[in-house]
Amino acid sequence: MTAHTSPARVARLGQNQYGKAEVRVVRVVRDGATHHLKDLNVSVSLSGAMDDVHLSGSNANVLTTDATKNTVYAFAQKHGVQSAEAFAIHLARHFVTRQEAIHRARVRVEEYAWDRIGPREGGHSFVRDARETRTTEVGYDGTRWQVVSGLKDLVVLNSTDSEFWGFARDEYTTLEETRDRILATEVAARWRFAWNSDDQSPPAWEEEYARVRGHLLDAFAGTYSFSLQQTLYAMGARVIEQTPGVDEIRLSLPNRHHFLVDLAPFGLENDNEVYYAADRPYGLIEGTVLREGAEAAIPVTD
């Protein structure tokens, strides 16, 4: 009689998380006749003792994603939204400290800017700002914090002071060298703060955002560029050198190519005046700049 044995287990549960994504919340502060607006898109991800829900279907340790959504709305009223970072910190601390099964929370926030329409009596009219989207990602494990702020969709252009020549060539190279070109990109940047403990005083988040953004723009405008890589490093290095509370910055710079239009068939010269902006494909330049002695911690991809 042949004995039957259970097959050897070949699968095991790996890293996992769950939460509520893209909770849209708008907070209005009514300061008499003048109103203030914060417009956020909040995504919460939770992880911890979640083996049972995956392996047996037991929901005993699962805080519902509906409760997560409701917490975002309640905290917008209870704590207000002083900054995207402060709001995310309030949420992350709540989930980790109130639920025993939750060991780590990650809160991502996008903030959309509105400009006041003025002068208008009452100060309650706004227009959606077409500039960049502000971002933050806060991680908390009950002991240590990681705050990575950032921005995306920041479109910048230099109409001169950019060259590109002396590059490697092979049998497939067709690009011509240039000593004067338009340099344009759509900046996505994420920077990690040194602050990581409640024992330390947190940064002034709003001021730090404005400071980093200003350094990125100043470095882009002030760098005579021989490559977009050189410009990327100049932007990152300026942030690290001028912002002591930032230990790491990661930049993603798509090269928004502008090509001179050939007007010779029409008997016209084109002395770096008329271009067409190519949508795709585009070069994508990415890199990280670190404070000396710091370890890289921002993930290469989301």
Rank of each mutant, 00 (worst) to 15 (best):
A194Q: 14
K38R: 15
Q82S: 12
D180H: 13
A296L: 13
Y209M: 04
E111Y: 01
L290I: 11
R9H: 07
W165F: 10
E111V: 04
V138C: 01
V239Q: 00
T223Q: 09
I249T: 01
R291E: 15
S45R: 14
V53C: 10
K69C: 06
R30G: 09
R190H: 08
G14H: 06
E286N: 15
V25R: 12
R128D: 06
G214V: 02
L268K: 12
W191S: 02
P299S: 07
E121A: 14
Y276P: 11
H4T: 11
G283V: 12
R280S: 13
V148M: 05
L175N: 10
R280K: 12
A188L: 03
E207Y: 05
S149D: 11
R104H: 15
Y233T: 06
D115P: 00
R93D: 08
S125M: 11
R104G: 01
E207T: 14
D66T: 04
Q146H: 03
L253E: 02
L37S: 01
G222P: 11
D51G: 02
A294Y: 05
D271Y: 03
E248Q: 06
A101I: 00
E292H: 00
T223A: 03
H36L: 07
E176Q: 15
Q200W: 09
E206P: 01
V127C: 06
P299Y: 13
E248C: 03
A105E: 10
G236L: 05
S47E: 09
L217M: 07
K38N: 12
I182V: 15
P244V: 04
N70C: 10
E186F: 01
R12F: 10
